[in-house]
């Protein structure tokens, strides 16, 4: 975290430890509030961790020329946990999550520390990321824009406008991820739109470079991005598991939004601690 040069190595063991820590942190916060999109945060934990700790460059003061946009805003608990770990959000910010006088809600708000765009309504983040990428090129500031989309979000027409735009406008400094956990509110995305899969070929047809990875394999995510050709926008389709890391949450839609009760919390902590060894 202390060099402006792109990294050529990402320590998967450290990533694994961090991701367990973040899942535990999110589980702890779940006990303060009714709802927090826990399953959606867990499915993209390794992706967002890799962006912040592996891909985004940082100077000695922690400032990055790169930008992260959580287009699937409902997954922002993982972003908050990481921003707290980086010292950008405070413990008090996290303690006041979704409470009166707090600044953090269930979706990221621009203006809060470390939040580069307000999201929450799906289908907005990719167009904003395209605009940011164009600004980086136009102003010759050379930043890379990282954006995480949900697979439900890719059903939005506006996402496809932005998809067409990113390649047509030559946004080679744009790296997007689809958190392909195969769930949306009303069931599996692959059941809602079977003709939509596989997704990667659609992006290739729209002029993107693509990669398909296991979205819980930190090394694979890092490798997919750092080995890109770089002359086109990159879409990483990351196969993930909603609620990843806690057995009773995995692929169970209710954990899109629900908070665990004390018993479930205890079991979740035990599972995470066991995984941590």
């Amino acid at each position: 975290m202390n060099t402006m040069a792109p990294r050529n190595f990402f320590d998967a063991d450290q990533a694994r430890d961090r991701c367990l820590k973040f899942r535990k942190r999110i589980l702890d916060i779940s006990q303060q509030v009714q709802a927090l999109h826990i399953g959606s945060a867990y499915s993209c934990t390794e992706i967002v961790d890799c962006v912040y700790y592996g891909l985004m460059r940082r100077d000695a003061a922690g400032k990055s020329p790169d930008t992260f946009v959580m287009s699937k805003g409902h997954g922002c608990m993982i972003q908050y946990a990481i921003l707290e770990d980086l010292g950008i959000l405070t413990r008090q910010d996290m303690d006041l999550y979704c409470k009166p006088n707090g600044i953090l809600g269930c979706h990221p708000d621009y203006g809060n520390p470390g939040i580069e765009a307000s999201t929450g309504s799906l289908g907005h983040g990719l167009s904003m990321a395209v605009g940011m990428a164009l600004a980086e090129k136009g102003r010759k500031t050379n930043g890379t824009i990282y954006v995480v989309l949900s697979d439900g979000e890719v059903q939005e027409g506006s996402t496809w406008e932005a998809t067409m735009m990113a390649s047509s406008l030559g946004c080679s400094n744009l790296v997007a991820f689809i958190d392909n956990n195969d769930f949306q509110s009303l069931g599996r995305t692959s059941h809602t739109h079977p003709s939509f899969y596989p997704v990667a070929e659609k992006y290739r047809a729209f002029g993107w470079e693509t990669a398909e990875v296991d979205g819980h394999d930190s090394s694979a995510i890092f490798q997919a991005v750092t080995s890109r050709r770089g002359d086109k926008p990159l879409m990483v389709v990351a196969k993930t598991v909603k609620g990843k890391g806690i057995s009773y949450m995995e692929n169970v839609p209710i954990w899109h939004y629900r908070s665990p009760n004390p018993q479930e919390y205890k079991q979740g902590v035990a599972e995470l601690e066991k995984a941590a060894g």
Binding site: S127, M128, V130, G131, M132, A135, G138, M165, L169
Partner: peptide, 28 residues
């Protein structure tokens, strides 16, 4: 030409791109 962007018939993206540009300090 780098500051004249024609999105075609894609108005949602037109607004989103303007937002992204403005988030990076531009005046779109």
């Amino acid at each position: 030409p780098e500051r004249f962007i024609n999105v075609g018939v894609a108005e949602q993206s037109m607004i989103g791109i303007c937002a992204g540009l403005a988030l990076k300090g531009c005046q779109p």
